[in-house]
Protein backbone atom coordinates (compact mmCIF):
# COMPACT_ATOMS: atom_id res chain seq x y z
CA UNK A 1 0.00 0.00 0.00
CA UNK A 2 1.77 3.09 -1.17
CA UNK A 3 -1.01 5.68 -1.09
CA UNK A 4 -1.80 6.95 2.40
CA UNK A 5 1.20 5.26 3.97
CA UNK A 6 2.69 7.01 7.01
CA UNK A 7 6.30 8.08 7.19
CA UNK A 8 7.42 8.28 10.81
CA UNK A 9 10.58 8.73 12.83
CA UNK A 10 11.04 6.31 15.72
CA UNK A 11 13.25 7.01 18.73
CA UNK A 12 13.73 3.55 20.21
CA UNK A 13 15.57 2.42 23.34
CA UNK A 14 18.21 -0.12 22.30
CA UNK A 15 20.02 -2.20 24.91
CA UNK A 16 21.92 -5.34 23.94
CA UNK A 17 21.37 -7.21 27.21
CA UNK A 18 20.75 -7.03 30.96
CA UNK A 19 22.97 -4.55 32.82
CA UNK A 20 24.36 -3.26 29.52
CA UNK A 21 24.37 0.42 28.72
CA UNK A 22 21.58 1.39 26.35
CA UNK A 23 20.66 4.43 24.30
CA UNK A 24 17.91 5.91 22.16
CA UNK A 25 18.46 5.12 18.45
CA UNK A 26 16.51 6.80 15.64
CA UNK A 27 14.89 4.73 12.87
CA UNK A 28 12.73 5.80 9.96
CA UNK A 29 9.45 3.89 9.55
CA UNK A 30 8.36 4.41 5.99
CA UNK A 31 5.13 3.64 4.17
CA UNK A 32 3.33 2.39 7.28
CA UNK A 33 -0.32 1.46 6.70
CA UNK A 34 -2.75 3.22 9.08
CA UNK A 35 -4.50 -0.16 9.46
CA UNK A 36 -1.44 -1.73 11.05
CA UNK A 37 -1.28 -2.26 14.79
CA UNK A 38 1.61 -0.64 16.64
CA UNK A 39 3.36 -4.01 16.94
CA UNK A 40 2.89 -4.72 13.21
CA UNK A 41 4.57 -1.38 12.55
CA UNK A 42 7.51 -2.58 14.70
CA UNK A 43 7.47 -5.91 12.80
CA UNK A 44 7.77 -3.98 9.53
CA UNK A 45 10.67 -1.92 10.83
CA UNK A 46 12.32 -5.12 12.09
CA UNK A 47 12.00 -6.77 8.67
CA UNK A 48 13.96 -3.88 7.24
CA UNK A 49 16.58 -4.15 9.99
CA UNK A 50 16.99 -7.92 9.47
CA UNK A 51 17.26 -7.49 5.68
CA UNK A 52 20.04 -4.96 6.14
CA UNK A 53 21.84 -7.27 8.60
CA UNK A 54 21.01 -5.37 11.78
CA UNK A 55 19.72 -6.65 15.09
CA UNK A 56 15.90 -6.36 15.20
CA UNK A 57 14.21 -4.42 18.02
CA UNK A 58 13.23 -6.89 20.75
CA UNK A 59 9.76 -6.45 22.26
CA UNK A 60 7.35 -8.67 24.18
CA UNK A 61 4.11 -9.82 22.56
CA UNK A 62 1.90 -12.87 22.49
CA UNK A 63 -1.86 -12.86 21.82
CA UNK A 64 -2.06 -9.48 20.03
CA UNK A 65 -5.70 -9.39 21.11
CA UNK A 66 -5.24 -7.17 24.15
CA UNK A 67 -5.87 -9.91 26.70
CA UNK A 68 -2.57 -11.62 27.55
CA UNK A 69 -0.62 -8.77 29.12
CA UNK A 70 2.64 -9.60 27.32
CA UNK A 71 3.06 -6.45 25.29
CA UNK A 72 3.55 -3.00 26.64
CA UNK A 73 5.98 -0.18 25.96
CA UNK A 74 6.05 3.52 26.72
CA UNK A 75 4.86 5.30 23.57
CA UNK A 76 5.48 9.05 23.55
CA UNK A 77 5.65 9.09 27.33
CA UNK A 78 2.41 7.19 27.94
CA UNK A 79 2.17 3.51 28.88
CA UNK A 80 0.66 1.59 25.92
CA UNK A 81 0.44 4.88 24.03
CA UNK A 82 -2.16 7.59 23.66
CA UNK A 83 -5.37 5.54 23.51
CA UNK A 84 -7.32 4.90 26.72
CA UNK A 85 -7.90 1.31 27.86
CA UNK A 86 -5.92 -0.05 24.94
CA UNK A 87 -2.83 -2.27 24.93
CA UNK A 88 0.05 -1.53 22.56
CA UNK A 89 -1.00 -4.44 20.32
CA UNK A 90 -4.50 -3.00 19.94
CA UNK A 91 -3.23 0.50 19.26
CA UNK A 92 -3.47 1.22 15.55
CA UNK A 93 -1.28 3.41 13.42
CA UNK A 94 -4.29 5.47 12.36
CA UNK A 95 -3.81 7.15 15.77
CA UNK A 96 -0.66 8.80 14.36
CA UNK A 97 -0.15 11.39 11.66
CA UNK A 98 2.27 11.37 8.76
CA UNK A 99 5.60 12.84 9.90
CA UNK A 100 5.06 12.07 13.61
CA UNK A 101 7.99 11.31 15.85
CA UNK A 102 7.39 8.40 18.22
CA UNK A 103 9.41 7.74 21.37
CA UNK A 104 9.42 4.05 22.33
CA UNK A 105 10.91 2.99 25.67
CA UNK A 106 10.68 -0.03 27.95
CA UNK A 107 8.78 0.05 31.26
CA UNK A 108 11.15 1.80 33.67
CA UNK A 109 11.38 0.42 37.21
CA UNK A 110 14.20 -1.01 39.28
CA UNK A 111 11.93 -4.02 39.90
CA UNK A 112 11.52 -4.50 36.10
CA UNK A 113 15.11 -4.87 34.84
CA UNK A 114 15.56 -4.60 31.07
CA UNK A 115 16.39 -7.92 29.43
CA UNK A 116 16.85 -6.53 25.94
CA UNK A 117 15.67 -3.36 24.16
CA UNK A 118 11.98 -3.03 25.08
CA UNK A 119 11.71 -6.36 26.94
CA UNK A 120 11.66 -6.21 30.73
CA UNK A 121 11.64 -8.94 33.38
CA UNK A 122 8.25 -8.79 35.12
CA UNK A 123 9.07 -11.72 37.44
CA UNK A 124 8.47 -9.38 40.39
CA UNK A 125 4.73 -9.56 39.61
CA UNK A 126 4.87 -13.38 39.68
CA UNK A 127 6.53 -13.27 43.10
CA UNK A 128 3.83 -10.91 44.43
CA UNK A 129 1.21 -13.42 43.23
CA UNK A 130 3.18 -16.29 44.77
CA UNK A 131 3.19 -14.45 48.11
CA UNK A 132 -0.61 -14.59 48.40
CA UNK A 133 -2.48 -13.98 45.16
CA UNK A 134 -4.28 -17.33 45.24
CA UNK A 135 -6.74 -19.42 47.27
CA UNK A 136 -5.57 -22.70 48.81
CA UNK A 137 -8.97 -24.40 49.00
CA UNK A 138 -9.22 -27.42 46.68
CA UNK A 139 -11.84 -26.37 44.16
CA UNK A 140 -12.98 -29.85 43.10
CA UNK A 141 -15.76 -30.23 40.59
CA UNK A 142 -18.06 -27.29 39.91
CA UNK A 143 -20.68 -26.58 42.58
CA UNK A 144 -24.30 -25.71 42.01
CA UNK A 145 -24.43 -22.20 40.60
CA UNK A 146 -26.23 -20.65 43.57
CA UNK A 147 -24.63 -22.52 46.46
CA UNK A 148 -22.36 -19.59 47.35
CA UNK A 149 -24.39 -16.41 47.81
CA UNK A 150 -22.57 -13.25 46.69
CA UNK A 151 -23.94 -9.77 46.29
CA UNK A 152 -24.06 -8.21 42.85
CA UNK A 153 -21.89 -5.32 44.08
CA UNK A 154 -19.15 -7.65 45.35
CA UNK A 155 -19.28 -9.77 42.22
CA UNK A 156 -18.99 -6.66 40.02
CA UNK A 157 -16.03 -5.25 41.99
CA UNK A 158 -14.26 -8.62 42.01
CA UNK A 159 -14.77 -9.12 38.28
CA UNK A 160 -13.62 -5.57 37.46
CA UNK A 161 -10.45 -6.14 39.48
CA UNK A 162 -9.95 -9.59 37.95
CA UNK A 163 -9.71 -7.94 34.51
CA UNK A 164 -6.06 -7.12 35.37
CA UNK A 165 -3.76 -8.78 32.83
CA UNK A 166 -0.56 -8.03 34.75
CA UNK A 167 1.03 -6.06 31.91
CA UNK A 168 2.85 -3.62 34.22
CA UNK A 169 1.53 -0.40 32.68
CA UNK A 170 0.54 0.82 36.17
CA UNK A 171 4.15 0.54 37.36
CA UNK A 172 5.44 2.13 34.16
CA UNK A 173 3.09 5.12 34.36
CA UNK A 174 3.51 5.71 38.10
CA UNK A 175 5.90 8.54 39.00
CA UNK A 176 7.06 6.31 41.90
CA UNK A 177 7.20 3.03 39.93
CA UNK A 178 4.68 1.66 42.42
CA UNK A 179 2.96 -1.70 41.96
CA UNK A 180 0.03 -0.64 44.14
CA UNK A 181 -2.63 -0.91 41.44
CA UNK A 182 -1.54 -4.39 40.37
CA UNK A 183 -1.30 -5.68 43.95
CA UNK A 184 -4.55 -3.98 44.94
CA UNK A 185 -6.37 -5.46 41.94
CA UNK A 186 -5.38 -8.98 43.00
CA UNK A 187 -6.25 -8.31 46.66
CA UNK A 188 -9.65 -6.91 45.63
CA UNK A 189 -10.35 -9.65 43.10
CA UNK A 190 -9.90 -12.41 45.69
CA UNK A 191 -10.85 -10.48 48.83
CA UNK A 192 -14.34 -9.60 47.63
CA UNK A 193 -15.32 -13.20 46.84
CA UNK A 194 -16.41 -15.84 49.40
CA UNK A 195 -13.67 -18.22 48.25
CA UNK A 196 -11.01 -15.63 49.10
CA UNK A 197 -12.16 -14.95 52.67
CA UNK A 198 -10.12 -17.54 54.68
CA UNK A 199 -6.81 -16.05 53.51
CA UNK A 200 -7.99 -12.47 52.97
CA UNK A 201 -5.90 -10.68 55.59
CA UNK A 202 -2.85 -12.94 55.43
CA UNK A 203 -2.94 -12.32 51.68
CA UNK A 204 -2.98 -8.52 52.07
CA UNK A 205 0.01 -8.59 54.45
CA UNK A 206 2.03 -11.05 52.39
CA UNK A 207 1.45 -9.36 49.02
CA UNK A 208 2.16 -5.85 50.32
CA UNK A 209 5.33 -7.12 52.01
CA UNK A 210 6.49 -8.78 48.77
CA UNK A 211 5.69 -5.60 46.81
CA UNK A 212 8.11 -3.72 49.11
CA UNK A 213 10.76 -6.45 48.93
CA UNK A 214 10.75 -6.23 45.12
CA UNK A 215 11.68 -2.55 45.38
CA UNK A 216 8.56 -0.95 43.94
CA UNK A 217 7.76 2.57 45.15
CA UNK A 218 4.78 3.59 47.25
CA UNK A 219 1.42 5.05 46.27
CA UNK A 220 0.99 8.84 46.25
CA UNK A 221 -2.38 8.73 44.45
CA UNK A 222 -1.37 10.67 41.36
CA UNK A 223 -3.89 8.50 39.50
CA UNK A 224 -1.55 7.84 36.56
CA UNK A 225 -1.87 4.04 36.98
CA UNK A 226 -5.65 4.09 36.55
CA UNK A 227 -5.31 6.24 33.44
CA UNK A 228 -2.68 3.94 31.92
CA UNK A 229 -4.40 0.65 32.76
CA UNK A 230 -5.59 -1.04 29.54
CA UNK A 231 -8.30 -2.79 31.58
CA UNK A 232 -9.54 0.32 33.37
CA UNK A 233 -8.76 -0.95 36.90
CA UNK A 234 -9.85 1.76 39.35
CA UNK A 235 -7.70 3.20 42.12
CA UNK A 236 -10.68 2.26 44.30
CA UNK A 237 -8.94 -1.12 44.54
CA UNK A 238 -6.10 0.65 46.39
CA UNK A 239 -8.66 1.78 48.99
CA UNK A 240 -9.61 -1.88 49.41
CA UNK A 241 -5.94 -2.92 49.71
CA UNK A 242 -5.25 -0.34 52.41
CA UNK A 243 -8.43 -1.25 54.32
CA UNK A 244 -7.51 -4.95 54.27
CA UNK A 245 -3.93 -4.08 55.23
CA UNK A 246 -5.09 -2.05 58.26
CA UNK A 247 -7.32 -4.88 59.51
CA UNK A 248 -4.56 -7.41 58.79
CA UNK A 249 -1.90 -5.44 60.66
CA UNK A 250 -4.22 -4.98 63.64
CA UNK A 251 -5.33 -8.60 63.84
CA UNK A 252 -2.09 -10.37 62.81
CA UNK A 253 -0.97 -13.23 65.06
CA UNK A 254 1.44 -16.13 64.87
CA UNK A 255 0.20 -19.41 63.47
CA UNK A 256 0.18 -22.22 66.04
CA UNK A 257 3.26 -24.37 65.65
CA UNK A 258 1.95 -27.44 67.46
CA UNK A 259 -0.99 -29.50 66.33
CA UNK A 260 -4.37 -28.81 67.82
CA UNK A 261 -6.17 -31.33 70.02
CA UNK A 262 -7.41 -34.56 68.47
Amino acid sequence: MSAGGLNLTLHVWRQSGPNKAGKIVDYPATNISPEMSFLEMLDTVNEGLITSGQDPIAFDHDCREGICGSCGVMINGAAHGPMKQTTACQLHMRTFKNGDEIWIEPWRAGAFPVIKDLVVDRGAFDRIIQAGGFISAPTGSPQDANSLPISKLDADDAMDAAACIGCGACVAACPNASASLFTAAKITHLGRLPQGQPERYRRALAMVTQMDIEGFGGCTLFGECQEACPKGISIDTIVQMNRDYIVAAASEREEKVEMGAG
Binding site: M74, G77, A177, F216, F222, E224
Partner: peptide, 21 residues
Protein backbone atom coordinates in the same frame (compact mmCIF):
# COMPACT_ATOMS: atom_id res chain seq x y z
CA UNK B 1 8.81 7.21 51.24
CA UNK B 2 10.17 9.86 48.87
CA UNK B 3 13.63 8.30 49.06
CA UNK B 4 12.18 4.84 48.36
CA UNK B 5 10.09 6.17 45.49
CA UNK B 6 13.10 7.83 43.89
CA UNK B 7 15.11 4.60 44.26
CA UNK B 8 12.30 2.60 42.62
CA UNK B 9 13.09 4.09 39.19
CA UNK B 10 16.89 4.24 38.88
CA UNK B 11 16.81 4.77 35.09
CA UNK B 12 14.56 7.70 34.12
CA UNK B 13 12.44 7.88 30.98
CA UNK B 14 13.68 9.95 28.08
CA UNK B 15 10.04 10.99 27.75
CA UNK B 16 7.22 10.54 30.26
CA UNK B 17 4.10 12.66 30.01
CA UNK B 18 1.87 12.84 33.12
CA UNK B 19 -1.72 12.27 31.97
CA UNK B 20 -3.88 13.11 34.98
CA UNK B 21 -1.49 14.30 37.72
Amino acid sequence: LTMRNKAARPEPYAKRVPQVS
